[in-house]
C-alpha cells in the first residue's frame, strides 16, 4: 500500500468544529487527489469551513454552488475540461442533505450520463450546517432539532439508489480508517466515468459525542456493522478488510448507540429495528460478494 503523502491541501485555519470528521475526510481526499483538482461544494458545512472571503483555508480551487446543483455543476466542469483536453479531477464534496435529499435529482442525472467525476457524500446524518435538522440520512431513533422525539423513519438507502445507476466505481468509507479511505479515493479517480464514495462522518455537536471521540465512534460504527466498508468495481463487490471481521462477529449495537447523546432514550423496539436493518444489509452484501445475487 502506498504511503499517504505529506502534502497538505487544507490549511490549519478552517472554521470546522473540534473533532470534525468531514474535514478529516477532506484532508485525505485531497492528499489522494493532489493539486490538479477542483472541488465543487454545494451548501453544507464545507461551504462555511473554508473561511470568509477573501481568505480560504483550501489549497485547491473550490467552486461553491447552490444546494441542489453540485452534480450538474461538476457535469459542466468535467465536459469543459474534457473539451480542453485537461485531466483535472472534478470532485463534488457534499453533505447528506445536498446528496440524499435536495441534490439527488442532479446527482442521478450526472451518474446516468456517465459524467467523468467523483462524487463524495460525507454523511453526518443530518443538516449540520443549519444546526442538526433531520435529513433523509438520519437513522431511525436519532434525535435532531426537527425530530426531538427521535426519527420514526428509516435512513434512506442511498447506496442502493446509487448502485441502480450501474456506475464503474462505488464505495463506502469513513475517516476512522484513513488508509482504506485514501485507497478508495485513488481508485475512484483512476476509474473513468462516474465514481461515488459514501463516507460516514461522525459529528461531535450533532451526534452529541465528545470532540475527541469522533474517530472512535467511526470505528464503533464499523465494528457494530452499522456502517459496512466495501467497494464495487464494475459491478464486483468486495467487503473491505476492516468490515470483514465485523461481519463475522459484530460488537453489540448498544456500544455504538449508547455513546451518542442523539440516541438517548431510544426504545428497545427501535433498537431492534436498527438491528434487523443491519442484519439484512450485511446478509445482502455477503450474498452479493459471494456472487449469490
Amino acid at each position: 500500500m502506498a504511503e499517504i503523502p505529506k502534502e497538505e491541501y487544507l490549511e490549519k485555519c478552517t472554521t470546522a468544529c473540534a473533532g470534525c470528521t468531514s474535514s478529516l475526510t477532506l484532508r485525505y481526499v485531497l492528499k489522494a487527489a493532489g493539486p490538479d483538482t477542483v472541488l465543487v461544494v454545494p451548501a453544507c458545512c464545507t461551504s462555511i469551513l473554508q473561511g470568509i472571503y477573501p481568505n480560504t483555508a483550501f489549497n485547491v480551487p473550490v467552486y461553491n454552488i447552490a444546494f441542489a446543483a453540485a452534480a450538474a455543476c461538476a457535469s459542466g466542469m468535467s465536459e469543459a475540461f474534457a473539451s480542453m483536453g485537461k485531466k483535472t479531477n472534478v470532485i463534488v464534496y457534499a453533505g447528506d442533505g445536498g446528496t440524499i435529499d435536495i441534490g439527488i435529482q442532479a446527482l442521478s442525472g450526472a451518474l446516468e450520463r456517465g459524467t467523468d467525476f467523483l462524487y463524495i457524500c460525507y454523511d453526518n446524518e443530518a443538516y449540520g450546517n443549519t444546526g442538526m435538522q433531520r435529513s433523509g440520512a438520519t437513522p431511525m431513533g436519532a434525535r435532531t432539532t426537527t425530530t426531538p422525539g427521535g426519527k420514526t423513519n428509516a435512513k434512506k438507502d442511498l447506496d442502493r439508489i446509487i448502485a441502480a445507476h450501474n456506475i464503474p466505481y462505488q464505495a463506502t468509507a469513513t475517516p476512522a480508517y484513513p488508509k482504506d479511505l485514501y485507497e478508495k479515493v485513488k481508485t475512484a479517480l483512476a476509474t473513468p466515468g462516474p465514481s461515488f464514495i459514501h463516507i460516514l462522518a461522525p459529528c461531535p455537536p450533532g451526534w452529541r459525542i465528545a470532540s475527541d471521540m469522533s474517530v472512535a465512534v467511526g470505528k464503533l460504527a464499523v465494528k457494530t456493522g452499522s456502517w459496512v466498508l466495501w467497494e464495487r468495481k464494475y459491478g464486483e463487490l468486495s467487503i473491505s478488510s476492516p468490515s470483514k471481521g465485523a461481519m463475522k462477529k459484530r460488537a453489540p449495537l448498544r456500544d455504538y448507540l449508547s455513546v451518542q447523546g442523539r440516541f438517548k432514550g431510544i426504545s428497545d423496539s427501535t433498537v431492534n429495528e436498527l438491528e434487523q436493518a443491519i442484519e439484512k444489509n450485511i446478509a445482502q452484501l455477503a450474498k452479493e460478494e459471494a456472487g449469490e445475487c
Binding site: I65, A72, G76, M77, A80, Q105, A106, G109
Partner: peptide
C-alpha cells in the same frame, strides 16, 4: 441534463473554466 436547473448549473460549471 435532467432539468433546467441543471442546464443553467452545467453552463455555470463550464463557463467558470
Amino acid at each position: 441534463v435532467e432539468s433546467e436547473h441543471s442546464a443553467m448549473t452545467a453552463c455555470i460549471g463550464a463557463s467558470i473554466t
